[in-house]
Protein backbone atom coordinates (compact mmCIF):
# COMPACT_ATOMS: atom_id res chain seq x y z
CA UNK A 1 0.00 0.00 0.00
CA UNK A 2 2.64 2.36 1.13
CA UNK A 3 4.67 1.20 -1.77
CA UNK A 4 2.23 1.64 -4.61
CA UNK A 5 0.94 5.05 -3.66
CA UNK A 6 4.51 6.20 -3.60
CA UNK A 7 5.34 4.66 -6.90
CA UNK A 8 2.45 6.52 -8.44
CA UNK A 9 3.83 9.78 -7.17
CA UNK A 10 7.41 9.26 -8.08
CA UNK A 11 7.44 8.97 -11.77
CA UNK A 12 6.04 12.24 -13.00
CA UNK A 13 7.10 15.22 -11.04
CA UNK A 14 10.03 13.89 -9.13
CA UNK A 15 12.51 13.42 -11.98
CA UNK A 16 11.63 16.81 -13.38
CA UNK A 17 12.31 18.57 -10.15
CA UNK A 18 15.48 16.72 -9.37
CA UNK A 19 16.92 17.18 -12.82
CA UNK A 20 16.00 20.80 -12.70
CA UNK A 21 17.59 21.29 -9.32
CA UNK A 22 20.96 19.72 -9.95
CA UNK A 23 23.06 19.62 -13.05
CA UNK A 24 25.09 16.59 -12.07
CA UNK A 25 25.50 13.93 -9.41
CA UNK A 26 21.81 13.57 -8.98
CA UNK A 27 22.17 10.78 -6.57
CA UNK A 28 23.20 13.16 -3.83
CA UNK A 29 19.90 15.02 -3.61
CA UNK A 30 18.05 11.76 -3.98
CA UNK A 31 19.87 10.16 -1.12
CA UNK A 32 19.52 13.19 1.07
CA UNK A 33 15.81 13.24 0.38
CA UNK A 34 15.58 9.57 1.08
CA UNK A 35 17.41 9.73 4.38
CA UNK A 36 15.26 12.64 5.41
CA UNK A 37 12.24 10.63 4.50
CA UNK A 38 13.29 7.59 6.48
CA UNK A 39 14.10 9.68 9.51
CA UNK A 40 10.80 11.42 9.70
CA UNK A 41 8.85 8.26 9.08
CA UNK A 42 10.74 6.66 11.89
CA UNK A 43 10.08 9.56 14.22
CA UNK A 44 6.45 9.59 13.28
CA UNK A 45 5.98 5.91 13.84
CA UNK A 46 7.90 6.06 17.06
CA UNK A 47 5.61 8.82 18.24
CA UNK A 48 2.53 6.94 17.18
CA UNK A 49 3.65 3.82 18.95
CA UNK A 50 3.12 5.61 22.25
CA UNK A 51 -0.56 5.71 21.47
CA UNK A 52 -1.60 2.23 20.56
CA UNK A 53 -5.03 2.09 19.01
CA UNK A 54 -5.36 5.78 18.49
CA UNK A 55 -5.11 7.85 15.35
CA UNK A 56 -3.59 11.28 15.27
CA UNK A 57 -6.94 12.97 15.42
CA UNK A 58 -7.59 11.32 18.75
CA UNK A 59 -4.12 12.19 19.90
CA UNK A 60 -4.50 15.86 19.17
CA UNK A 61 -8.05 15.97 20.42
CA UNK A 62 -6.82 14.79 23.80
CA UNK A 63 -4.68 17.87 24.04
CA UNK A 64 -7.63 20.15 23.64
CA UNK A 65 -9.67 21.46 20.77
CA UNK A 66 -7.65 24.63 20.24
CA UNK A 67 -4.39 22.82 19.97
CA UNK A 68 -5.79 20.21 17.68
CA UNK A 69 -7.10 22.96 15.44
CA UNK A 70 -3.62 24.41 15.16
CA UNK A 71 -2.18 21.08 14.22
CA UNK A 72 -4.87 19.70 12.04
CA UNK A 73 -5.82 22.74 9.96
CA UNK A 74 -2.51 22.79 8.12
CA UNK A 75 -2.93 19.11 7.49
CA UNK A 76 -6.32 19.75 5.97
CA UNK A 77 -4.86 22.57 3.94
CA UNK A 78 -2.03 20.39 2.80
CA UNK A 79 -4.20 17.49 1.83
CA UNK A 80 -6.67 19.73 0.13
CA UNK A 81 -4.05 21.49 -1.96
CA UNK A 82 -2.33 18.21 -2.66
CA UNK A 83 -5.61 16.82 -3.87
CA UNK A 84 -6.23 19.73 -6.17
CA UNK A 85 -2.77 19.76 -7.64
CA UNK A 86 -2.70 16.01 -8.11
CA UNK A 87 -6.04 15.84 -9.83
CA UNK A 88 -5.25 18.76 -12.01
CA UNK A 89 -1.69 17.75 -12.82
CA UNK A 90 -2.51 14.20 -13.63
CA UNK A 91 -5.47 14.96 -15.80
CA UNK A 92 -3.20 17.39 -17.57
CA UNK A 93 -0.76 14.57 -18.09
CA UNK A 94 -3.47 12.36 -19.52
CA UNK A 95 -4.36 15.19 -21.80
CA UNK A 96 -0.82 15.71 -23.00
CA UNK A 97 -0.02 12.09 -23.38
CA UNK A 98 -3.00 10.39 -24.86
CA UNK A 99 -6.38 12.01 -24.80
CA UNK A 100 -5.52 15.21 -26.55
CA UNK A 101 -9.01 16.23 -27.51
CA UNK A 102 -10.89 15.33 -24.39
CA UNK A 103 -11.55 18.40 -22.29
CA UNK A 104 -9.87 18.56 -18.91
CA UNK A 105 -13.04 18.45 -16.89
CA UNK A 106 -13.96 15.20 -18.55
CA UNK A 107 -10.69 13.55 -17.61
CA UNK A 108 -11.04 14.80 -14.08
CA UNK A 109 -14.42 13.19 -13.64
CA UNK A 110 -13.26 9.58 -13.58
CA UNK A 111 -10.41 10.54 -11.30
CA UNK A 112 -12.57 12.14 -8.71
CA UNK A 113 -15.52 9.86 -9.20
CA UNK A 114 -13.57 6.71 -8.64
CA UNK A 115 -11.49 8.17 -5.85
CA UNK A 116 -14.59 9.39 -4.06
CA UNK A 117 -16.33 6.11 -4.57
CA UNK A 118 -13.47 4.22 -3.01
CA UNK A 119 -13.03 6.71 -0.23
CA UNK A 120 -16.72 6.62 0.60
CA UNK A 121 -16.48 2.91 1.18
CA UNK A 122 -13.97 3.42 3.93
CA UNK A 123 -10.43 2.59 4.75
CA UNK A 124 -10.79 -1.16 4.55
CA UNK A 125 -11.98 -0.95 1.01
CA UNK A 126 -9.09 1.34 0.13
CA UNK A 127 -6.74 -1.26 1.49
CA UNK A 128 -8.37 -4.20 -0.20
CA UNK A 129 -8.50 -2.35 -3.47
CA UNK A 130 -4.89 -1.36 -3.17
CA UNK A 131 -3.95 -4.94 -2.55
CA UNK A 132 -5.76 -6.29 -5.59
CA UNK A 133 -4.58 -3.43 -7.74
CA UNK A 134 -1.05 -4.23 -6.69
CA UNK A 135 -1.56 -7.83 -7.71
CA UNK A 136 -2.92 -6.87 -11.10
CA UNK A 137 -0.91 -3.83 -12.07
CA UNK A 138 2.42 -4.16 -10.32
CA UNK A 139 3.69 -6.92 -12.60
CA UNK A 140 2.78 -4.82 -15.60
CA UNK A 141 4.44 -1.84 -14.05
CA UNK A 142 7.62 -3.67 -13.15
CA UNK A 143 7.82 -5.24 -16.58
CA UNK A 144 7.70 -1.87 -18.28
CA UNK A 145 10.03 -0.39 -15.71
CA UNK A 146 12.62 -2.99 -16.59
CA UNK A 147 12.06 -2.40 -20.29
CA UNK A 148 12.80 1.26 -19.79
CA UNK A 149 16.46 0.38 -19.41
CA UNK A 150 16.65 -0.53 -23.06
CA UNK A 151 18.36 2.60 -24.27
CA UNK A 152 20.45 3.26 -21.24
CA UNK A 153 24.03 4.37 -21.71
CA UNK A 154 25.67 3.76 -18.36
CA UNK A 155 28.45 6.20 -19.03
CA UNK A 156 26.04 9.02 -18.41
CA UNK A 157 26.28 8.03 -14.75
CA UNK A 158 29.55 9.88 -14.61
CA UNK A 159 30.82 12.07 -13.12
CA UNK A 160 30.05 10.42 -9.83
CA UNK A 161 31.91 12.50 -7.27
CA UNK A 162 31.97 15.97 -8.62
CA UNK A 163 29.35 16.88 -6.11
CA UNK A 164 27.20 19.86 -6.77
CA UNK A 165 25.42 21.33 -3.77
CA UNK A 166 23.54 23.97 -5.61
CA UNK A 167 20.33 21.97 -5.31
CA UNK A 168 20.03 23.01 -1.67
CA UNK A 169 19.15 26.50 -2.75
CA UNK A 170 16.93 25.40 -5.57
CA UNK A 171 13.19 25.73 -5.37
CA UNK A 172 12.57 22.64 -7.43
CA UNK A 173 14.34 20.51 -4.91
CA UNK A 174 11.87 21.41 -2.24
CA UNK A 175 9.04 20.78 -4.60
CA UNK A 176 10.37 17.31 -5.11
CA UNK A 177 9.53 16.49 -1.51
CA UNK A 178 5.97 16.13 -2.68
CA UNK A 179 6.84 12.60 -3.54
CA UNK A 180 7.96 11.91 0.00
CA UNK A 181 5.52 13.83 2.05
CA UNK A 182 2.25 12.87 0.50
CA UNK A 183 1.68 9.51 1.85
CA UNK A 184 3.29 8.86 5.15
CA UNK A 185 0.68 10.68 7.24
CA UNK A 186 -1.88 7.99 6.60
CA UNK A 187 0.03 5.77 8.97
CA UNK A 188 -1.36 7.95 11.69
CA UNK A 189 -4.92 7.50 10.56
CA UNK A 190 -5.22 3.80 10.26
CA UNK A 191 -4.41 2.86 13.82
CA UNK A 192 -7.75 1.71 15.11
CA UNK A 193 -8.51 -0.24 11.94
CA UNK A 194 -5.24 -1.80 11.12
CA UNK A 195 -2.04 -2.55 12.84
CA UNK A 196 1.13 -2.42 10.94
CA UNK A 197 4.61 -3.61 11.46
CA UNK A 198 6.99 -0.69 11.76
CA UNK A 199 9.82 -2.67 10.29
CA UNK A 200 7.78 -3.52 7.23
CA UNK A 201 6.91 0.08 6.59
CA UNK A 202 10.53 1.09 6.84
CA UNK A 203 11.49 -1.78 4.61
CA UNK A 204 9.03 -0.77 1.94
CA UNK A 205 10.30 2.79 2.22
CA UNK A 206 13.78 1.51 1.56
CA UNK A 207 12.53 -0.61 -1.29
CA UNK A 208 11.36 2.58 -2.89
CA UNK A 209 14.91 3.81 -3.18
CA UNK A 210 15.68 2.15 -6.52
CA UNK A 211 12.52 3.60 -7.94
CA UNK A 212 13.41 7.08 -6.77
CA UNK A 213 16.88 6.63 -8.09
CA UNK A 214 16.01 5.23 -11.46
CA UNK A 215 13.06 7.46 -12.09
CA UNK A 216 15.67 10.16 -12.25
CA UNK A 217 18.48 8.19 -13.74
CA UNK A 218 16.69 6.40 -16.54
CA UNK A 219 16.01 9.61 -18.47
CA UNK A 220 19.48 10.87 -17.68
CA UNK A 221 21.07 7.67 -18.78
CA UNK A 222 19.15 7.62 -22.01
CA UNK A 223 19.31 11.25 -22.96
CA UNK A 224 22.00 12.83 -20.95
CA UNK A 225 21.45 15.60 -18.47
CA UNK A 226 21.34 18.48 -20.88
CA UNK A 227 18.58 16.90 -22.92
CA UNK A 228 16.57 15.57 -20.00
CA UNK A 229 16.38 19.04 -18.55
CA UNK A 230 14.32 20.14 -21.52
CA UNK A 231 11.56 17.65 -20.89
CA UNK A 232 8.42 18.26 -18.96
CA UNK A 233 8.13 14.60 -17.94
CA UNK A 234 11.54 13.06 -18.46
CA UNK A 235 10.67 9.54 -17.47
CA UNK A 236 7.71 9.40 -19.79
CA UNK A 237 9.80 10.57 -22.67
CA UNK A 238 12.51 8.09 -21.84
CA UNK A 239 9.93 5.34 -21.91
CA UNK A 240 8.71 6.57 -25.24
CA UNK A 241 12.07 5.85 -26.73
CA UNK A 242 11.78 2.18 -25.90
CA UNK A 243 11.20 0.11 -28.96
CA UNK A 244 10.40 -3.56 -28.79
CA UNK A 245 9.64 -5.41 -31.92
CA UNK A 246 8.08 -8.49 -30.38
CA UNK A 247 5.39 -6.77 -28.36
CA UNK A 248 1.86 -6.55 -29.70
CA UNK A 249 1.58 -2.97 -28.62
CA UNK A 250 3.54 -0.08 -29.87
CA UNK A 251 3.39 2.43 -27.12
CA UNK A 252 3.99 0.71 -23.87
CA UNK A 253 4.28 4.11 -22.25
CA UNK A 254 0.56 4.29 -22.14
CA UNK A 255 0.19 1.15 -20.10
CA UNK A 256 2.87 2.31 -17.75
CA UNK A 257 1.25 5.68 -17.33
CA UNK A 258 -2.15 4.23 -16.76
CA UNK A 259 -1.03 1.78 -14.15
CA UNK A 260 0.58 4.72 -12.39
CA UNK A 261 -2.62 6.67 -12.73
CA UNK A 262 -4.48 3.83 -11.10
CA UNK A 263 -2.10 4.03 -8.15
CA UNK A 264 -2.68 7.74 -8.06
CA UNK A 265 -6.42 7.24 -7.83
CA UNK A 266 -5.90 5.14 -4.77
CA UNK A 267 -3.69 7.84 -3.36
CA UNK A 268 -6.40 10.39 -4.04
CA UNK A 269 -9.02 8.31 -2.35
CA UNK A 270 -6.74 8.02 0.63
CA UNK A 271 -6.27 11.77 0.75
CA UNK A 272 -9.98 12.37 0.46
CA UNK A 273 -10.67 9.90 3.17
CA UNK A 274 -8.19 11.53 5.51
CA UNK A 275 -9.48 15.04 4.93
CA UNK A 276 -13.03 13.99 5.43
CA UNK A 277 -12.30 12.07 8.57
CA UNK A 278 -10.60 15.11 10.05
CA UNK A 279 -13.49 17.30 9.05
CA UNK A 280 -16.02 14.90 10.48
CA UNK A 281 -14.23 15.14 13.78
CA UNK A 282 -14.72 18.86 13.88
CA UNK A 283 -18.25 18.88 12.59
CA UNK A 284 -19.64 15.63 13.83
CA UNK A 285 -23.22 16.30 12.70
CA UNK A 286 -22.55 15.71 9.04
CA UNK A 287 -22.27 12.26 7.59
CA UNK A 288 -18.91 11.09 6.44
CA UNK A 289 -20.00 10.38 2.90
CA UNK A 290 -21.66 13.76 2.46
CA UNK A 291 -18.45 15.47 3.47
CA UNK A 292 -16.71 13.40 0.84
CA UNK A 293 -19.16 14.30 -1.89
CA UNK A 294 -18.93 17.92 -0.97
CA UNK A 295 -15.16 17.83 -0.96
CA UNK A 296 -14.81 16.15 -4.29
CA UNK A 297 -17.26 18.51 -5.93
CA UNK A 298 -15.35 21.43 -4.45
CA UNK A 299 -12.07 20.05 -5.71
CA UNK A 300 -13.58 19.49 -9.09
CA UNK A 301 -14.79 23.05 -9.33
CA UNK A 302 -11.45 24.46 -8.24
CA UNK A 303 -9.61 22.24 -10.67
CA UNK A 304 -11.75 23.39 -13.53
CA UNK A 305 -11.23 27.00 -12.54
CA UNK A 306 -7.44 26.82 -12.63
CA UNK A 307 -6.49 28.47 -15.88
CA UNK A 308 -3.16 26.91 -16.79
CA UNK A 309 -0.17 24.85 -15.82
CA UNK A 310 1.66 27.83 -14.38
CA UNK A 311 -0.97 28.29 -11.72
CA UNK A 312 -0.79 24.63 -10.87
CA UNK A 313 2.95 24.96 -10.38
CA UNK A 314 2.38 27.99 -8.20
CA UNK A 315 -0.09 26.06 -6.09
CA UNK A 316 2.43 23.34 -5.91
CA UNK A 317 4.91 25.80 -4.52
CA UNK A 318 2.52 27.19 -1.94
CA UNK A 319 1.83 23.70 -0.89
CA UNK A 320 5.52 23.29 -0.17
CA UNK A 321 5.14 25.41 2.97
CA UNK A 322 2.36 23.21 4.20
CA UNK A 323 4.38 20.22 3.19
CA UNK A 324 7.35 21.11 5.31
CA UNK A 325 5.07 21.91 8.16
CA UNK A 326 3.58 18.48 7.79
CA UNK A 327 6.94 16.79 7.42
CA UNK A 328 8.58 18.53 10.33
CA UNK A 329 5.93 19.49 12.84
CA UNK A 330 3.60 16.56 12.82
CA UNK A 331 6.10 13.75 13.44
CA UNK A 332 7.92 15.72 16.10
CA UNK A 333 4.81 16.87 17.88
CA UNK A 334 3.47 13.35 17.97
CA UNK A 335 6.77 12.16 19.35
CA UNK A 336 6.83 14.85 22.00
CA UNK A 337 3.27 14.17 23.06
CA UNK A 338 4.09 10.53 23.16
CA UNK A 339 7.10 10.92 25.36
CA UNK A 340 5.23 13.25 27.69
CA UNK A 341 2.25 10.98 28.07
CA UNK A 342 4.56 8.12 28.82
CA UNK A 343 6.16 10.09 31.58
CA UNK A 344 2.81 10.95 33.05
CA UNK A 345 1.93 7.33 33.24
CA UNK A 346 5.06 6.64 35.19
Amino acid sequence: MYFITHVGLIFFMYPTDIIESASRTHWVPIFIGMVFHLVFIWIYMKGLSYFPGKNIIDIYMEKGKGLSLIFLIPIIGYFFLANITTVRAYSEIINIVFLSETPLWATMIPFLFIATYIAAKGLNVIFHTAFIVACVFLPLFLFIFILSFQNVDWRYFFPLFDIDYSFISNRSYYKSFFSFAGVFLFLGFIQPYHTYDRKKVLLSAILLLPFFLFSVYVPILTFGQATSATFQFPFVTALDSVYISWLVFDRITMFFLISLLIFIMIFLSLLLWMVSSILVHFVPIVKHSYVLYFLSILIFIICVMLPDWKVVEKLFWWNTYFRFYVILVIPFSVLIFGVRSKRKVR
Binding site: Y117, M254, I258, S259
Partner: peptide
Amino acid sequence: GVFGLLAGMLLIIA
Protein backbone atom coordinates in the same frame (compact mmCIF):
# COMPACT_ATOMS: atom_id res chain seq x y z
CA GLY B 1 -9.78 4.69 -24.23
CA VAL B 2 -7.20 2.55 -22.55
CA PHE B 3 -7.30 4.79 -19.52
CA GLY B 4 -11.03 4.21 -19.22
CA LEU B 5 -10.45 0.52 -19.56
CA LEU B 6 -8.16 0.34 -16.59
CA ALA B 7 -10.17 2.89 -14.63
CA GLY B 8 -13.17 0.64 -15.15
CA MET B 9 -11.14 -2.24 -13.82
CA LEU B 10 -10.29 -0.19 -10.77
CA LEU B 11 -13.94 0.64 -10.26
CA ILE B 12 -14.89 -3.00 -10.42
CA ILE B 13 -12.11 -3.95 -8.04
CA ALA B 14 -13.27 -1.26 -5.67
